[in-house]
Design a protein around this nucleic acid. Structure first.
Lengths: 362, 362
DNA sequence: CTGAAAGCGCTAACAA
DNA sequence: TTGTTAGCGCTTTCAG
């Protein structure tokens, strides 16, 4: 069933049918109604592939993340989808698995498929950025979810410095004085920014940032556990507050502390970053800095759609750093422990959608 | 840059270029090499939209789930993507948010976009299944991730009964005698199957299934918490083992038990279902039944691609119920507590990719 | 082995 | 207001 068939059935030309499909004001109301009836009756649905070819745009955007099973990214994806749905766009998601090769090949595939634009979380350090440069050169609409060195483009991300500042300040206000920062992986620019925020907060409160208090961590629970075991072992350090690169590291770190008979938060307060996961449901619920994941996705999609609209005309690069939010739970003290109900309430208030991660099967 | 341009540049016809693009054996090796060089030099990439129109297939499949930020679904998506990548297919993911309206509209959109096939996790109870019927009638290739009443089609899912049987048996072998089942939401067919498995295990071990021991739960942590509070309150029940519909419910339930000063696993053993989340990292790591999420995605994609290949010819419906696996951690006893390292090891062994959920930001 | 021609299903000038 | 015509960029018989 094609537009031709409908035209024949209605005794008009395909162009007229096309007119009603795209509700052009030119077509007579009566014929329009008649054609609509026939379309309805035959359940005719236009072929979007043909349409895309004629129109030279597909109405699909590509979203490239490292791993959609990471709750942070899936929430971003939700935000992207939400905006795109309103604007009648569809989203195609690709997982790069942190592999450069996949990232490049995905970008190429999506270009060949004539996606109208791309949102991507790129590899940042120590890789060839040719594909990003090329997007820029071709004026292909795209927005990044993380900066890439040496390329000026649209970027939407959380304000890591502000978040780490908030977290560190929280620890200081709680009376902690020896505060450590457990870093992320070396490749993460975000970890550097969080360290900066951490140090800025220390300085702002007349505490001296000591390099020994910055300890290498990583991105997963195991990394945090390892860091926790090593850190505690080194003699001479007795931190009473720990800011971790992210929640996973914090959880691993806490576990290590427990194994060493250190109590959280009494002996040492621990704070995470992201709040994309399940920190709220640990026995000692994790205090953390919530990334506005949904908003990042929405904003990125909005900006991209805008860029698509202006067809590479506009030159002004937009960099948006969305504010994070402190989510106070139990791992730093300052909240009655065991008050599960109020803790859950507090959590709900701060982190919209934060429970989605817990909706497992049905 | 189109195929025409390349043809002109090479002094051949578009048909010949098309030949080398699809490496037809008909075209001469020398001309092929020459054309290839020109293609390379100009970085020409064929327009897949045009190709799709001519070929009448897009090389894209649609995946519809309730919520991609649910780790179970994102792992399934990973499996789907993995297979599709091998076969040069792309995947477009849609979130239905458990809303019938969205499910229907997504199905229509994806059909109009001429997706070559669909994988969907449909709403199962109390909704109009017209769109599924229509897919079936149109011989549109699709596979479901959950049965839908009254329609015989391909289904790939976990073997819920077997899983619940395994779990219940585990509790029994650990010496538990009063075992309760906390159900999922009323709309979940899977919950009924898990109850069946639970009852079968009881019967198989000469324990009498008592209706009072089947207690309404739900799908999220809050539901489990609520169930835990209510259940404990009812006089006359002293279960020493609890099988929960899923991990989230189990976590909420455990929390409730703790608030009522019941110890897990000493007083009561608790076991979850899915293992898609973070149960491994709780203070009392959660024993659970792992769904083979990745395998479900892979199998579904393989079957779908096969169906696409046979163009609606084959009639035999395939129903595949993949076996689940018991993941023994701490919440039922039977594993030394505090042995974090070995617990993590054990977990790795059982649940491939299970840590992905913990990779938050970089 | 290569090229000419028709067509995939839709849109967009331009005529009528 | 509607129809005619000419593409969009690729594939595919069918001649040569």
């Amino acid at each position: 069933m094609t537009i031709q068939d409908i035209a024949r059935l209605a005794g008009v030309s395909p162009a007229t049918v096309s007119g009603v499909l795209n509700d052009s004001p030119l077509v007579n109301a009566r014929t329009k109604a008649r054609i609509l009836a026939i379309i309805e009756q035959h359940k005719y649905k236009p072929n979007q592939v043909a349409r895309a070819l004629a129109l030279r745009h597909t109405g699909i955007i590509g979203l490239l993340v490292k791993d959609i099973s990471n709750p942070l990214y899936s929430k971003i994806a939700l935000g992207v989808e939400e905006i795109c749905e309103q604007k009648m766009y569809n989203v195609i998601i690709g997982n790069t698995h942190k592999e450069w090769q996949r990232e490049v090949s995905y970008v190429n595939i999506l270009k060949q498929r004539r996606m109208d634009g791309l949102i991507l979380f790129p590899l940042q350090k120590g890789v060839d950025l040719g594909h990003i440069h090329e997007l820029k050169k071709d004026r292909y609409p795209f927005v990044l979810l993380a900066e890439v060195p040496g390329i000026e483009t649209d970027v939407i991300r959380a304000d890591d410095e502000q978040g780490a500042f908030l977290a560190t300040q929280h620890l200081i206000r709680l009376g902690r004085r020896t505060i450590a920062y457990i870093t992320g992986p070396a490749s993460a620019l975000a970890s550097d920014r969080r360290r900066n925020g951490y140090q800025a907060a220390l300085t702002a409160h007349d505490l001296l940032p000591k390099p020994q208090l910055v300890w290498p961590g990583g991105w997963c629970v195991e990394d945090g556990y390892r860091a926790g075991m090593n850190f505690c072992m080194s003699p001479g350090f007795c931190p009473d507050g720990i800011l971790c690169y992210n929640d996973s590291v914090a959880i691993g770190f806490i576990r290590a502390l427990q194994e060493r008979n250190l109590h959280v938060p009494d002996d040492v307060a621990v704070i995470g970053f992201d709040d994309a996961g399940f920190g709220a449901y640990l026995e000692t619920a994790l205090t953390t800095v919530a990334q506005p994941a949904l908003a990042i996705g929405q904003k990125a999609a909005e900006l991209l759609l805008e860029r698509i609209g202006q067809k590479g005309a506009n030159e002004d690069v937009q960099k948006v750093f969305l504010p994070t939010q402190l989510v106070i739970r139990e791992s730093c003290g300052g909240l009655a422990k065991g008050s599960y109900h109020s803790s859950m309430k507090a959590n709900e208030k701060h982190t919209e959608h934060s429970n989605h991660i817990l909706e497992v099967s049905t």
